[in-house]
Design a binder for these strands. Structure first.
Length: 551
DNA sequence: GATTTCACGTA
DNA sequence: CGTACGTGAAATCC
């Protein structure tokens, strides 16, 4: 089966661009003119699907120009479904789609004057491989129409391979859409209330330093809040874990490392412990989320911008730079809707166990998803208290085998044999060095492991990857449905956080937008589960600031 | 100069 | 001996 729609492949390098279909090259010219060509095609060809080797270089100029593209096919994302992994060149994508042996790929030209292959300019060379020079920007710029034509061919070949895999095609279009959404997130950014953020940073990290000497003074003052508790050891470098450990040892705090959760029990032993733990929080904001972070990542339009990727190499979640996925809670009041707008904050409830119920097709576990609080039902079925039931479910998904979960896990085995078998199989495959496949048909490779402990660690990784990865696939399907559903009301997704969505929308359409986000979940879940019995729930609230309505 | 270790933020 | 990611500072490797 081929990829649905009319395929238009776009290749961009610098200021130049080309577009091709199966009928041949349709456009070859400047990026500024490509924007008009794409806009015209998007409106006149209802079934247009945009194909690119990677979303970022091709789609960024289109998104910057304000275009909204409905359908895409991302060769890099589709390739990742086929073979797993992360970093790939277009030569590898081409070879895998063509069914060629990767080992036979010609080596890239060394640029050596005596390398005669540099004279061979054919796009597809001996053995059907792409010219190894295809990874070089200047070669790409000279061959953009060819790259676009090759992209159309590759998309069709990938479609033929993925259509043999359960859910392969829908996951490929979803992951492609996620990659385009990532370009939009990168371009548009997250709205920030700059005065509030500056206030919050000032409270923890101190005022904006005037110069380097001022920065040193503020830093020393912060250190002094800790060091004043240990007279005579004022030379201790708080940023050096070994120094801190020695200091703590001298006070009778016996810890191997100085991580916060090891130190927390000693908070009352000596005032320096609490001061150190408070210092760490302030230091984190000062270094990672301080003034230089603000200057680097928040634009003149008060938008926080990081680089987004649609699918990490491991479990398959979206990732984001500029600290977007680890913004400390104290700073979240600064994430705020623009005037006349609201934020619709939606997060999935207990998504991983619900996903496990769906992907393992365990009927009794699926029945538990009917309730808003899945763990309450599981507790009844296991005849345990709710906290113990929750620990048991999480232990099963994360591969914890020791501690208080052991008895509860046996009950899980008896009550939900199908779900537990699904997890055990994934763990065993990882331990044996084999890849696992997610519900959506994405291959996750297991890393090689030498000793038994490392093999078990890989087993925990693959056990978790089939759940976390499938949850990521459902999340992306939801996010893309939301992207389309909120658009008529002027809404736009501004943040994706694994199981949480933030939509920025005009205040006048707040209610409609919130309803659209909920409807989108039901529609996406129905499609994703194939109409199965598993229920998904979301907590959805209309707020001005991200920090509101957060339990 | 690049890589590893420690630490910690988020889910 | 619960999973993943990104970031920064210091130590370590080459």
């Amino acid at each position: 089966m081929s990829v649905r729609g009319a395929l238009y492949a776009v290749a961009v390098q610098g200021d130049h661009a080309a577009c091709a279909t199966t009928d041949g090259v349709q456009f070859d010219g400047a990026v500024a003119d490509l924007v008009r060509f794409v806009e015209q095609t998007e409106t006149s060809v209802a079934e247009a699907r945009w194909v690119w080797w990677a979303a970022a270089p091709a789609a960024t100029p289109l998104v910057r120009a304000g275009l909204h593209l409905r359908r895409s096919w991302d060769l890099t994302e589709a390739h990742r479904l086929l073979v797993g992994g992360f970093e790939v060149g277009i030569d590898e994508i081409w070879a895998v789609a063509a069914g060629l042996d990767l080992a036979g790929r010609p080596a890239p030209s060394t640029g050596d004057l005596f390398d005669l292959r540099a004279d061979d300019d054919a796009v597809v060379g001996a053995g059907g491989y792409l010219n190894p020079s295809c990874l070089q920007p200047d070669w790409q710029q000279a061959h953009l129409p060819d790259l676009a034509r090759m992209a159309v061919v590759t998309a069709d070949r990938q479609g033929a391979l993925l259509s043999r895999r359960a859910h392969g095609m829908s996951t490929a279009t979803s992951e492609s859409g996620a990659a385009l959404l990532c370009v939009e997130l990168t371009v548009h950014g997250l709205p920030i209330d700059r005065p509030v953020l500056e206030q919050l940073i000032t409270e923890t990290a101190g005022p904006r330093p005037r110069d380097a000497a001022d920065a040193d003074r503020i830093r020393a003052a912060r250190d002094q809040l800790v060091l004043r508790h240990v007279p005579g050891r004022g030379a201790t470098d708080l940023r050096n874990p070994a120094h801190v450990r020695d200091l703590l040892h001298s006070l009778g705090v016996r810890v191997d490392d100085t991580r916060a959760w090891h130190l927390e029990p000693y908070r009352d032993l000596h005032p320096v412990v609490g001061a150190l733990l408070d210092w760490r929080k302030a230091e984190r904001i000062a270094t990672t989320y301080g003034w230089s972070w603000l200057d680097r990542f928040i634009g003149a339009d008060d938008r926080l911008r990081g680089t987004w990727t649609a699918c990490d190499g491991g479990a398959g979640r979206m990732t984001a730079g500029a600290g977007l996925h680890s913004l400390p809670t104290p700073l979240r009041p600064a994430v705020a809707a623009e005037p006349g707008h609201v934020l619709v904050r939606a997060d999935l409830g207990q998504v991983e166990p619900r996903v496990l119920a769906a992907v393992s097709a365990d009927p009794d576990f699926a029945a538990a998803t009917a309730q808003d609080d899945l763990y309450a039902t599981v507790a009844q079925q296991l005849q345990l208290e709710r906290p113990a039931a929750k620990i048991a479910v999480l232990a099963a998904m994360y591969g914890q085998t020791s501690g208080p979960a052991a008895d509860a896990l046996q009950r899980m085995e008896r009550t939900y044999p199908r779900a537990l078998r699904y997890l055990r199989t994934a763990a065993e495959r990882g331990e044996q060095g084999q890849p696992v496949m997610t519900y959506g048909g994405r291959l996750v490779r297991s890393r090689p492991a030498a000793d038994p402990a490392a093999r078990r660690a890989i087993g925990r990784f693959t056990r978790n990857a089939v759940v976390q990865g499938a949850a990521a696939e459902l999340f992306k399907a939801w996010a893309l449905t939301v992207r389309d559903a909120v658009r008529p009301w002027g809404g736009r997704i501004v943040l994706c956080l694994h199981d949480e969505l933030l939509v920025h929308a005009p205040a006048a359409h707040a209610g409609r937008t919130a309803q659209a986000v909920d409807d989108a979940l039901q529609a996406a879940a129905r499609r994703w589960t194939g109409g199965g019995p598993v229920r998904f729930v979301a907590d959805i609230k209309v707020v001005q600031r991200w920090s509101e309505a957060k339990e």
